[in-house]
Design a protein around this nucleic acid. Sequence first.
DNA 1: CCTCCCTTGACTATTATTGACCTTTTAATA
DNA 2: TATTAAAAGGTCAATAATAGTCAAGGGAGG
Lengths: 160, 160
Amino acid sequence: MYSLCDDIEQYIIKLIEGSPDQTITIQRGRLANEFDCAPSQINYVLATRFNVFRGFIVESRRGGSGYVRIRRVPIDRLEPVVVYLDDNEEYLRESDVEDLVNWLEREDFITAREGALIQAATIDALNKIADLDFSSVADRNRLRARIFREILLQILRWVE
Amino acid sequence: MYSLCDDIEQYIIKLIEGSPDQTITIQRGRLANEFDCAPSQINYVLATRFNVFRGFIVESRRGGSGYVRIRRVPIDRLEPVVVYLDDNEEYLRESDVEDLVNWLEREDFITAREGALIQAATIDALNKIADLDFSSVADRNRLRARIFREILLQILRWVE
DNA sequence: CCTCCCTTGACTATTATTGACCTTTTAATA
DNA sequence: TATTAAAAGGTCAATAATAGTCAAGGGAGG
């Protein structure tokens, strides 16, 4: 079954495989033109085939001489933790953060200093927003989970 | 994908790196002439790439023998940044965070990876809390500043 | 039919570039 | 000295060039 989507995916993958650093930089408009499709089709392909969970990261810039950069990165065992955070958003207490950070350190996913940074962002900072009208425990836990989640995704994406 | 803007930026950076005191003095008109562009283009590059958040200070003088002086400023302590965060809480936009993080990286206060973690916590995470009834821009900026601030304090406290 | 992808297009957001007009400083000259 | 022209640089708004988002519709397989 023919699919434009798959075509574009294959095309991009070929480009990446042919690049020395597993990174390509393209222009959305030009690519859309080559495939004679709507530009947003490219976004669809990027969102469904080149997201972090499939081991790619995408950066872009709008405006004159804008671009889309696609990079292949190795993925590892962090994914399940992200899923856990998604499922348990409103129950992520401070102590849970501490446990997770300890685990991440033990598993050598993060350095001790990075662990300290994470705790600063998800514990200390959230203890100092009493004035910000954001007091429900569940909401605070959710906020904590979102911050933690994004940090984890960042670790997942990271390549030296 | 050619970008005049990026070209001018690179050119200026080269000049600065080749100067003994990280300072260069140029003439807007002459530079604009070299790049065959509108003089105000130079102002645009200065405003977007060489502002304080990115660690540069620009001074200038008009009139006969006018000039534009661009200086890369080292910071030796993080406290001024923390003070800045306290004073400008409600105006700390995403782009300010990006610029500050880049600065911190260049000054070797943080690693590139730590920079990525900070951005995850203060940008990505805050873009995903629309449902958390926490939508005022100023409040969001404040929250961003608090998180950033705690992370910085953590870095300040950190000893290997 | 129903669902899940795919595909499109209208609308939005961001970044770069240019040009018209304004301000400041210096230098020549009345 | 006062005036004025020339030589800088500054500001701002309009336009162009990208990319992003979102909702609606289409079609193939169950």
